[in-house]
Design a binder for these strands. Structure first.
Lengths: 196, 196
DNA sequence: TGTACATCAGTGAACGCGCGTTCACTGATGTAC
DNA sequence: TGTACATCAGTGAACGCGCGTTCACTGATGTAC
């Protein structure tokens, strides 16, 4: 009944979605142009018309991931105006993303400097813009804690390091990889700073 | 003059060293059994007599890396007894390792649960022991800050997350990947906690 | 509205590559006597 | 000290695999007239 279309319609989009699904199912190793093409229901040579190489597809996937990342943080902070609660909510969003999209999360933060030259420029631009937008989300929540008339850079670095480390160490696939059982919740460890 | 030896002597060791050098030179992607064998000056089939598969070699490399990691932290804390200075020194060691062996550092903390079954049991045991020893180094330095008669688990989690996140975010190959230039030094961001 | 045609997103075959692993083998090592 | 021999760490060829990429092609799409 449904006539077989020769043209896919939006293969560019479909390849990104397929790539994300592949990574979430099998980690970064599971990603390949051929598997993305297969999952999008297209021959393995088709992607070449949309991406100038596998590196650009990877970059597009990372860019997309940053978009989801930012949206997750925004969803968590929505409606919260008290500065400290808002900052913690954003961190919870950060951690939620790292849990729910663990493979993407790890992939996003892998260094790619040596491959950057192979990325299609508009894709690289989008990647950088979305990455900056994610950082902004956190930075804006930190602004409330800056010294009057001063920079919040130190606070940003502190909070980002803390939440990122917590995510990397404890938000992996099962949460069972840590040697000592379930770690304390993120919000619970913050007061520990008074001891140091 | 030097007679060509058929037997290598300690190929097991040489393969691990070769693997570490390969990873440090070209990242995790650059590691393969064949390249390790070539670098050790041996045919590509030789490693099969020492490792029951590439996964075990990788695990042995990670185990070795944890050893270097622990030694680096110990070297930094040596001779320092004041608790806070000692804890910071260990963090500096943590960061030094992450800078000087960035590829190893990232590789060590990659999830491998799905491959664990393929690791030769004694190698897996060694890996777990060395990983625990590294954690102990940090945990012992945290003990001084535990509530009297209480657990230091919260402090450990806080400090580990913070230093690990900082390492992951800012200690990558060049240090130039961060979007906003050089971040504040680790020791400088600690006091920022008072603002939160 | 109908027709000619340029465009271009698909196909399927083919390429060369590096990989892990297996296999029969060989020859150095080191032990038993 | 000398000899026979078992062991086993190496070799080199071969396997099948999945990969990215190129190529000539084809046929659907959509525009110009």
């Amino acid at each position: 009944m449904t006539k077989q279309k020769r043209h896919h319609g939006d293969l560019y989009e479909a390849l990104i979605v397929a790539g994300i699904e592949l990574m979430e199912a099998g980690g970064p190793e599971a990603l390949s142009l051929r598997k993305c093409a297969a999952r999008a229901g297209v021959s393995h040579a088709a992607p070449a018309h949309h991406f100038n190489g596998v590196v650009s597809l990877k970059a597009a996937i990372v860019a997309r991931s940053y978009g989801i990342f930012t949206k997750t943080m925004q969803a968590h902070r929505e409606g919260i105006s008290e500065p400290r609660a808002r900052l913690i909510a954003i961190c919870e969003g950060y951690l939620a993303f790292s849990r729910e999209h663990n493979a993407l999360f790890r992939f996003m933060f892998q260094p790619f400097a040596d491959e950057a030259a192979q990325i299609n420029p508009p894709i690289l631009q989008e990647l950088e813009a979305r990455s900056a937008a994610a950082y902004d989300e956190l930075a804006q929540a930190c602004a409330a804690f800056a010294p009057v008339g001063g920079q919040a850079r130190g606070t940003e670095t502190l909070v980002w390091s803390l939440v990122h480390g917590y995510a990397m160490l404890f938000a992996s696939r099962e949460g069972s990889e840590t040697p000592h059982g379930r770690p304390p919740d993120f919000a619970q460890i913050l007061p520990e700073f008074q001891r140091l």
